[in-house]
Nucleic acid binder design. Structure first.
Lengths: 157, 157
DNA sequence: CCTAATTAAATTGCGCGCAATACATCTAAT
DNA sequence: ATTAGATGTATTGCGCGCAATTTAATTAGG
């Protein structure tokens, strides 16, 4: 009889993605910790530096995060003095997130972070773009399939 | 003067990996939740099905997880009746993790999970292997660079 | 108008993931 | 044997991430 041929984490696409995500988190941690930031907080700041005054939902959409995650995260950014949160005058349901001077100043202080991470990745720009595109496409496919019950006969990623 | 040319999450490799990891988690969730399992718990069970009686450290090594994460996770698997935890007679520092009958039975009950995920990924086997290998290599590179201070001039992944 | 349905945030509860620390056991060196 | 160091787990504290629920504000319908 043939061996069970079980999928092992080390061989699985899902696990490669899972552990690479943790590896990125660990790479960012020392760079961001000296400013008291976490990686998800840094992502939110990137969005705000590009477009200040977004609502919680507008920030959550590109990050695929909801208010359950963002509300406490934003509260921490607020108590650290990086942002302010104010109800929208036009629609009081919404909360607009605005950078403080301190929050804006962080952009310059963290300007070298992308280069440091790029160095840690150690990949030519072209390959980096190509790999990023393939993983983004993977995410899109997974999100598209999610919710619909699955019982096909794929390869066990 | 040129635009600031800020890195945006949507364009970054780290974010593609981050959001793909969450997408996998969401894809696994409904498949595992009916058995009361989480994705990391499923990874541990995969290792145990292949080799029962491993120590906490032996389980943690391939997953890049330490006892701070595994101890409570294993306690939950134990109270769910899937595993037993017993101190090693030879070396009482170590804790050996052994499947119960219930834990072993889960392997058959979850046999269709890999296929369901493979279907959600929707990728030819050859491409799947190639992409898995590239992301694993990315993780290896990041872990190798982690710890050493970085201040090069990469591309901002 | 006034209600019903919708929408935006916030809240609650739980399970990671990890740094830092504590504790027990084992090993080595004297 | 005693002690010092190393090793394996456990504990504590904090910040996500997400499902489920709640609250408040807006919109739509009658």
């Amino acid at each position: 009889m043939p061996a069970p041929n079980r999928p092992m984490p080390v061989d699985m696409l899902c696990f490669a993605v899972y552990s690479a995500a943790h590896a990125f988190n660990r790479a960012y941690r020392p760079l961001l910790a000296r400013h008291g930031l976490t990686y998800p907080q840094y992502l939110v700041l990137l969005l705000l530096w590009a477009d200040d005054g977004q609502t919680v939902s507008e920030l959550g959409a590109p990050l695929f995060l909801d208010s359950g995650t963002l509300t406490p995260l934003l509260r921490r950014l607020e108590s650290a003095g990086h942002i302010r949160r104010e109800r929208d005058r036009e629609d009081e349901r919404q909360v607009r997130i605005r950078l403080t001077g301190r929050g804006r100043a962080l952009e310059a202080e963290l300007a070298d972070v992308p280069a440091a991470i790029g160095c840690a990745v150690g990949m030519p720009a072209a390959e980096l773009r190509e790999l990023t595109g393939r993983i983004r496409e993977l995410g899109r496919t997974l999100r598209a399939t999610a919710g619909s019950e699955m019982d096909g006969d794929g390869d066990g990623a």
